[in-house]
Design a protein around this nucleic acid. Structure first.
Lengths: 105, 105
DNA sequence: AAGACCTGCAACTATCGAGTTGCACTGATC
DNA sequence: GATCAGTGCAACTCGATAGTTGCAGGTCTT
């Protein structure tokens, strides 16, 4: 799982347009061009967003002939959620779970 | 709970400095000035971060005499985590849970 | 082979956000 | 009442990022 860094994942999830893309991908894998047809932004803008999402492991590219479709990785979301859950649950006990993320990453 | 909008919460969690602040607050409530003594940023920068965190309900101000201490709201993190968990878990079933967030907000 | 479609790279603009400094205001303390 | 610590507001710099357009390179189709 490499868990990776957690903060960049939240940064990636902190953009409305990227959620629109994720929502669109929820209805089936799609290419940047296909997404550009459904969303009010240019193909290149979407390509950049997809690069960001891929960087943090929220999305995965799949070559299909000449086009590149993207698939959402639900497990990544779940894993992130679980880590966040842990932090929130243990906060009141004043455990240093947060420090790990803030420093150790 | 008002659930509120979810995306801004992620945006708030997408900054390293804010995690440092949350980590520091995890060791006990503290004011902006007190935090400025422990972190390598100015008091005003911290004040802005605290405003952001408060805006999305991750933190709560508590007046103590002339100073304003801030307390982390662990429940907010847990609630956010649970919503994220739901989305991740149901993604594979292609449910439109995401659409609610991306559109309804 | 030609044309259409999709991708990828590059340059550019513009806005947002993180950070700073400076100053004014308020509440405790001596 | 004077002073000091803490907060709050405002203006400013600067880097990151969301967005655009334009063009070059691949790949499938006819």
């Amino acid at each position: 799982m490499t868990t990776g860094t957690l903060v960049p994942v939240f940064a990636a999830l902190g953009d409305e347009t990227r959620w629109s893309i994720l929502a669109a991908l929820g209805e089936g894998d799609a290419s940047a061009s296909a997404l550009a047809g459904r969303l009010p932004v240019s193909r290149q803008a979407i390509a950049k967003h997809l690069a960001v999402l891929q960087e943090v492991g929220l999305v995965e590219p799949v070559r299909v002939g000449r086009e590149v479709r993207y698939r959402v990785i639900g497990a990544r979301l779940s894993a992130t959620a679980r880590r966040l859950e842990t932090i929130g649950a243990e906060w009141d006990r004043r455990l240093a779970a947060i420090k790990e993320i803030a420093e150790g990453l």
